[in-house]
């Protein structure tokens, strides 16, 4: 059975969901995952790991954990030392920054943002989007180590039992680039790429202030993030970090609600793989309705507040 080294993100001892999905992706493909964690709290997070098949965790400490180049070099050494056939990280900002560097250290190609991973012949094959999901490619790698990042919200987390044995490694090299600070978002604010519910707004909201009704709906869900179309980001109504689409983020939440978004092809490419899609638009012919599971034709300023009240009522009961 082959080993995969899986980089699992943690913040202050708390495991990120995306890392658990990544372990799930490895286990589902029949590999034994070796978890790799870094930074303050890594040992606590590793002790809390309860994911299928994880018997070993490697925790990095030392100044190099604050440097993507030093950490990537350390991860590549673990892959080599363990004779791993794969290296996985989540397709988060951190994972997509680290994984290509690890791949280069291993002189292996990287498959970013994969949505499928399975064993095939003596190796593995992946599926991943091209043109932000306008096409889907199935690929294999002739490299010794399969390197990939897994799209958020796609792979299952597989709970297991037992506590992994933890090895600790110190990265004493401070690296060429060092993270010196993080300006945290408000604790409650989820990123559009990792939220399980996304409420997005477009030009149909008429002005920047129109997003008030979007924010209210998102907060009624509790676990929702606010998204935006390219048009409103270009108009300066919303920050680029919220942009969904081909020149923004590709998202796959359980529920995607598009309000006042007509559905340009580059936007559809970024959200078409969402679990359930709801569209609210006053134009019954808007292309967004072609990908929506449920649509309401109407004025966003009338429909959305009514929806917010209904959602808030349900959440209050549960």
């Amino acid at each position: 059975m082959s080993n995969f080294v899986v980089f699992v993100e943690q913040v202050g001892g708390k495991l990120r969901q995306s890392g658990l999905e990544c372990l799930g992706a490895a286990a589902q493909a029949g590999a034994t995952p070796i978890a790799a964690l870094a930074g303050d709290g890594a040992a606590d997070a590793a002790a809390a790991l309860n994911a299928q098949g994880v018997q070993t965790a490697v925790c990095f400490d030392g100044p190099g954990t604050q440097s993507p180049d030093a950490l990537a070099a350390g991860l590549a050494e673990v892959v080599k030392a363990k004779g791993a056939q794969g290296f996985l990280a989540a397709a988060s900002a951190h994972g997509r920054d680290l994984a290509p560097r690890v791949a280069a250290h291993l002189d292996a190609v990287l498959f970013a943002d994969i949505t499928g991973l399975e064993s095939a012949g003596s190796g593995y094959q992946v599926t991943r989007p091209w043109l932000a999901g306008k096409a889907i490619a199935t690929l294999t790698s002739s490299a010794d180590v399969l390197c990939a990042t897994t799209r958020l919200n796609v792979f299952p987390t597989l709970p297991g039992s037992g506590t992994p044995s933890v090895e600790t490694q110190t990265l004493s090299d401070a690296g060429k680039a060092r993270i010196t600070g993080v300006e945290s978002k408000a604790a409650a604010k989820l990123d559009v790429s990792e939220a399980s519910v996304v409420v997005s707004g477009g030009r149909g909201l008429k002005e920047a202030e129109g997003f008030g009704i979007i924010e209210e709906l998102a907060s009624a869900f509790g676990d929702a993030a606010v998204g935006a179309s390219r048009a409103v980001v270009d108009l300066g109504w919303r920050p680029h970090s919220e942009q969904v689409g081909q020149t923004g983020k590709t998202v796959s939440p359980k529920l995607y609600i598009a309000v006042g978004i007509s559905g340009a092809i580059q936007h559809l490419a970024g959200m078409k793989t969402s679990g359930t899609i709801v569209a609210i638009n006053k134009d019954a012919d808007a292309p967004i309705f072609k990908v929506a599971d449920y649509g309401i034709v109407g004025d966003a300023f009338e429909v959305v507040p009514a929806l917010t009240r209904a959602v808030a009522e349900i959440k209050a009961q549960s």
Binding site: A135, L139, T273, A284, F289, I296, V297
Partner: peptide, 21 residues
């Protein structure tokens, strides 16, 4: 990287308009 195959994504199941307003 070797491409095994490229496909267009499966079309989404047809949705419906649940109503107006």
């Amino acid at each position: 990287a070797q491409v095994v195959q490229a496909n267009l994504p499966a079309p989404r199941k047809e949705g419906r308009i649940v109503g107006e307003g």
